[in-house]
Amino acid sequence: MTGKSHHPYIYAIIKSYCIYIGETQQHPVSRWGQHLQEIGSFTKRLKEADQDLWAMDEEIVFLCIDCKEIAKLSQDEHKIVTQYIEHRVHEKCILNLPRLAPIEKIISDTTRTAPARCRYSWGDELAVKVYEQIMDYLSTQNAENNGTSC
C-alpha cells in the first residue's frame, strides 16, 4: 500500500460481519494502529457489538480510499469535507445494508461529527465513488467465498 503521509482518506475496517468506517488526514496505517489499541474506537465499538467476535482470531480487513479531490482544496478545508464524505458513505451503507453482505452491522457512527452540508457540488459524487469501492471489495470477497471467482 502506498500513499502520502498527510492526505485525506476514507477507510474501512472489517471483521466478519462488522464494518467500521472512518476518515483521517494522515496515512491510514497510523490511524489503524490507534484503532486496534485497547482504547481505540474500533476496538471499543466491536467489543460493544460482539464481545465474542472481538476475541475470535478472525481476519481483520483494512481498506482505504485516497480522496485526491479533497487534497486539491486548501489544507483548512480537508477535515470538514472528508467528514462530510465519511458521513454520506455511512448513510449509503445504512440505507443499503442488505446489499453489503456479509456485513450486517455498521459499528462506527458519524452523527456527532458530520457537517450538515458540503459547499462543493462534487461532494456527494465522491461519497458515491467511495461507497462503490467498498461495495466492489465486498462483492469480490463474496464471489471468492462462494467459489465463483476465476
Rank of each mutant, 00 (worst) to 15 (best):
G3I: 08
G3R: 09
S5D: 02
H6V: 14
H7Y: 15
P8H: 11
I10L: 14
I10K: 01
A12I: 04
I14P: 01
I14R: 11
S16M: 06
Y17E: 00
G22K: 06
Q26K: 13
V29K: 15
V29I: 12
R31Y: 05
G33L: 13
Q34C: 03
H35S: 01
L36F: 15
Q37L: 10
G40W: 04
G40H: 07
T43V: 07
T43Y: 02
R45Q: 05
R45E: 00
K47Q: 01
Q51P: 02
L53M: 14
A55V: 04
D66R: 13
D66V: 09
D66H: 12
K68A: 10
E69V: 06
I70E: 00
I70C: 01
A71T: 05
A71I: 03
L73R: 14
E77Q: 15
H78A: 05
I80A: 13
V81F: 07
T82P: 02
Y84H: 13
I85C: 11
V89Y: 11
H90A: 12
C93D: 00
C93S: 11
I94V: 14
L95I: 04
R99S: 08
E104C: 10
E104I: 09
K105Y: 06
I106S: 00
I106G: 06
R112K: 14
R119I: 03
Y120H: 15
Y120A: 04
D124A: 12
D124L: 11
L126S: 04
V128N: 12
V128D: 07
K129T: 02
V130Q: 01
I134W: 07
Y137G: 09
L138E: 04
Q141H: 12
E144C: 13
N145S: 11
G147S: 09
S149W: 05
C150K: 13
C150V: 11
